[in-house]
């Protein structure tokens, strides 16, 4: 069970004359098991939104709620997948995945089963005792996703998780994430620069305005996805070729373009 609620949330960095208004009046609801992607011009405050849900930044106006409670500090109920993976270099893949479970005082036997499950889920069995630097970027991000998933978090927060990967690996990871979302649906807040990625992955796509960021519009993808039976198509390029996909992509693209033009 996990829901996220931005209630007129704002964020000002610093204070006094150097204060910097990054977000203003952000309102957005993410329902339980819903996958919402946020797109927006660079510097509009997407990362700030996510960091407020994670508890790394506090709101300076309005509220941010997870499961109806104000966020006060970071915690394992809100797992984050970072763009730069952020795996502990001195821990093996297995130890990285296990770390959060140890912090939650999960008993040893149960911990082993959960880690095995997470390794299998992400296809990492043969790399269990490797160190992160011995893996490719795509593999490292799989570990980071496994580390987040294994905690069974209320919400999963991903900030451009595939931004550091090459194009081919990114496609594989996108397909993987869709598969994961089918096997183990979670509440996900996903930030990306890629409009196609957002449409392919998300149930809804929120478009943000330029700075100070607010939610400009929210586009429903899920009804189109189910109506047009995208899930029956195995590969990402088949989905992206459908007329309905192209239509949605163009709609979001235009909306974003307006913001970018206005910013210049």
């Amino acid at each position: 069970m996990g829901s996220i609620r931005f209630e007129n949330s704002g964020k000002t960095y610093g204070n006094g004359p150097g204060a910097f208004l990054a977000l203003e009046g952000v309102t957005l609801d993410v329902a339980d098991k819903e996958f919402v992607a946020i797109v927006g011009p660079s510097g509009c405050g997407k990362t700030t939104c996510l960091r407020m849900v994670a508890g790394f930044e506090s709101v300076t106006s309005g509220r941010v709620l997870v499961n109806g409670k104000d966020v006060v500090a970071p915690g394992p109920d809100r797992a984050v997948v970072f763009q730069q993976f952020a795996l502990f270099p001195w821990k093996t893949v297995e130890e990285n995945i296990e770390f959060g479970l140890r912090n939650k005082n999960v008993p040893k036997g149960e911990r082993r089963d959960l880690v095995q499950g997470a390794l299998a889920l992400m296809g990492l069995e043969s790399h269990a005792s490797a160190f992160p630097h011995q893996l490719s970027g795509g593999m490292q991000q799989r570990v980071a996703i496994a580390r987040a998933y294994v905690l069974d978090p209320a919400v999963l927060l991903m900030d451009e998780p595939f931004g550091a990967l090459d194009a081919q690996t990114r496609v594989v990871m996108q397909e993987e994430l869709v598969r994961l979302a089918r096997v183990q649906p979670r509440t996900v807040l996903f930030i990306t620069h890629g409009v196609e990625e957002a449409v392919y992955l998300a149930d809804r796509v929120a478009v943000m305005t330029r700075r100070p960021g607010r939610i400009k519009e929210v586009i429903d993808v899920k009804s189109v996805r189910t109506g047009e039976k995208w899930d029956d198509l195995e590969r990402i390029e088949d989905v992206m070729d459908t007329e309905s996909f192209v239509h949605l992509r163009t709609q979001i693209w235009k909306s974003l373009r307006e913001e970018k033009i206005a910013a210049n």
Partner: peptide
Amino acid sequence: IDKSLIAAARMLGTPRGRMIGEV
């Protein structure tokens, strides 16, 4: 130390002693 590692450890609910010893 990479700031994102500290952030990851906090996100993973690391208690203080373990934060020092393992991060």
